[in-house]
């Protein structure tokens, strides 16, 4: 069952994410010695069963992509996934390391730095508003192929996915990624109740 946000809740959620995006953009800008702008996020909510379909949809074309995963545990718990197509991942890595990056390990490390910032800022903000506590597990990153989606192990233990489009403008580059916050029904309800009180 998918618990969609009503328009008011969506506005508040967007505002919260926007604040954390502002903080993230400032840090990312510092990292790159450049001005970085994270666009106002586009948010949607889907059932976990539709996650793979959504990933394929946001990537658009049939090519490789990078997937990061990070669990957060505590009174507010769930998992954050990030999806970047190889072009965006490569572009960000080139900007961060100020050179044409060829080593895949360097690309992965760059993406993890980026997602670490956005995840910490967003989940930190959610934790703050629901007065919860969380600890982050070590993230992981892997390169995947859209054509082999059926072969990858499915993520279990969640009911809902908040999908957040993250478009980052740095110099002339547009780095496009998608953030997926996986929550069970209880966590989502708790988040919605808190949002309603704000």
């Amino acid at each position: 069952m998918t618990h969609s946000f009503n328009p008011q809740q969506e506005d508040v959620l967007k505002e919260l994410i926007n604040v954390s995006f502002g903080l993230s953009a400032s840090l990312i800008g510092d990292m790159l010695d450049n001005h970085a702008k994270l666009h106002i996020p586009e948010i949607s909510n889907i059932a976990i069963a539709n996650l793979d379909k959504k990933i394929v949809e946001v990537l658009g074309e049939k090519h490789d992509f990078y997937l990061t995963k990070q669990r957060f545990l505590g009174s507010f718990n769930g998992e954050v996934l990030f999806v970047f197509n190889t072009f965006s991942a490569q572009a960000f890595s080139n900007l961060l390391l100020q050179q044409e990056v060829e080593d895949e390990g360097d690309v992965k490390a760059s993406i993890l730095e980026l997602t670490n910032i956005i995840t910490s800022a967003c989940i930190g903000k959610f934790c703050e508003i629901i007065d919860g506590e969380t600890i982050f597990k070590v993230p992981s990153i892997e390169k995947r192929e859209i054509s082999r989606m059926d072969e990858y192990a499915k993520i279990e233990g969640y009911d809902n996915v908040i999908v957040i489009k993250t478009a980052l403008d740095i110099e002339k580059e547009n780095i496009l990624g998608h953030m997926f916050i996986l929550l069970n029904n209880q966590m989502l309800e708790q988040l919605k109740r808190t949002i309603d009180k704000l």
């Binding site: 510092d30 490390a109 910490s120 070590v138 990153i141």
Partner: peptide, 21 residues
């Protein structure tokens, strides 16, 4: 950069074997 991220966001920052060795 990682130190700055951790201090600014009051949140952990990670180096992983998979990407950094």
């Amino acid at each position: 950069r990682h130190i700055k991220t951790a201090l600014t966001l009051s949140s952990p920052s990670f180096f992983t074997t998979d990407s950094n060795h």
